[in-house]
Design a protein around this nucleic acid. Structure first.
Lengths: 204, 204
DNA sequence: GGCTTTCCATACCGCTCGGTATTTATTACA
DNA sequence: TGTAATAAATACCGAGCGGTATGGAAAGCC
């Protein structure tokens, strides 16, 4: 039973490469920033026509939302999954810092698409903006749960509530991602991380 | 001896209000962000014609540079001057945090024009971009000198060099200014500041 | 071969952008 | 009363934007 057995729909078969277009959009917005790449430029890079994109995704807002979903599925989810892997606190934290300061490579741009959207949220359409809000809430909740688990395990002590500390961690990591994307020296940013997170690792 | 005594130049007397235009430009870019306000919109708000602005300032880059200079003269210089006022460390730090989290008022927008330019430096023209570079170097040097004076006075201990710590302080304050401008809760940001700067105030 | 259905891309829409050519208004000087 | 000089605003330029109207291409069905 091959694909040829399925009954083909009535009209002209579609040739639009949705996956490739989504990949180009995600990479472009990730690497060059939300405000650095127009929809026209994405069409040019993906080698597709603009009406094709509108037929497939609806409008720019919905394409951006789809790109964010794609980014979460392929990149962010695994980074956040490390929070519930149950590894030692310092090891998990080091992993987060390493991710937040990773250098630019052809396959993996520096920075983070989600952080970039968060920094320019007022530019986003309503669909993507709501998506970003949801993701941020989820991320902070995941940080808070992780911190609380480490407290319960006696690994760390907190000087503020888990919620406030989680928001602090999120702010620090977002800042590092933003600066990494802007071209700052990753090693210097790791120095900053050491200072910022000393408040978590140093017991009084 | 009044102004009427000075010999007037040959042609039509100028009526362009440079000070007012500069003020409108500074406030607009400060409040609405570098990428939120076009030169066209500034002309509209200031009630001046576009060729008038070009005659007076040259181009958008030079107008932005003039606006940054205006901002430094009227706002930033006094904030940085507190670093060399010789007051107690904690008092000076609290002042910096208070400035970095000040609420939005009609006279004083939240955030900081300089921080906004720093976050979008790739959008700036060459003149303004170079200006931003100079200001950042100066600011970090001022922070480093302040920290070193406090170390010498026995007020604080550092876990990294004065230069690294100064860059860390600058990064934290810039992040707070950015978030304040984005509408984050100032009280929550002050909580973050307490955590971030604990590394300075808590002796081991 | 028509006919419908679906997808395709070219070419266009109205708008805003940074920047400027052009014409008119206002002055000093001869 | 010209004439040169300076500054004013209107109206325009080319380019890029997000978004779409339109007509043709490729399929199944009769």
């Amino acid at each position: 039973m091959t694909d040829d057995d399925v009954q083909r729909p009535r009209g002209r078969p579609k040739t639009f490469d949705r996956a490739h277009t989504l990949d180009v959009a995600t990479q472009s917005w990730w690497r060059d920033g939300i405000d650095g790449i127009s929809l026209n430029e994405i069409c040019r890079r993906a080698g597709v026509s603009k009406p094709g994109v509108y037929r497939e995704f609806g409008n720019e807002d919905q394409l951006m939302d789809a790109a964010l979903t794609h980014y979460v599925d392929t990149v962010l989810a695994s980074a956040l999954a490390s929070l519930s892997a149950g590894r030692p606190f310092q090891e998990t934290l080091d992993g987060l810092v390493a991710y937040a300061t990773h250098a630019d490579t052809p396959e993996m741009p520096a920075g983070c698409l989600f952080a970039g959207m968060r920094n320019q949220q007022w530019r986003l359409g309503p669909v993507t903006s709501a998506h970003v809000d949801r993701l941020r809430v989820d991320a902070v909740a995941a940080y808070a749960a992780w911190l609380q688990r480490c407290v319960d395990a006696g690994e760390i002590e907190l000087r503020a509530s888990a919620e406030v500390t989680a928001a602090f961690v999120e702010a620090q990591l977002t800042m590092m991602l933003t600066r990494t994307a802007a071209g700052d020296d990753p090693e210097a940013l790791r120095d900053h991380a050491r200072l910022a997170f000393a408040v978590l690792t140093d017991t009084t």
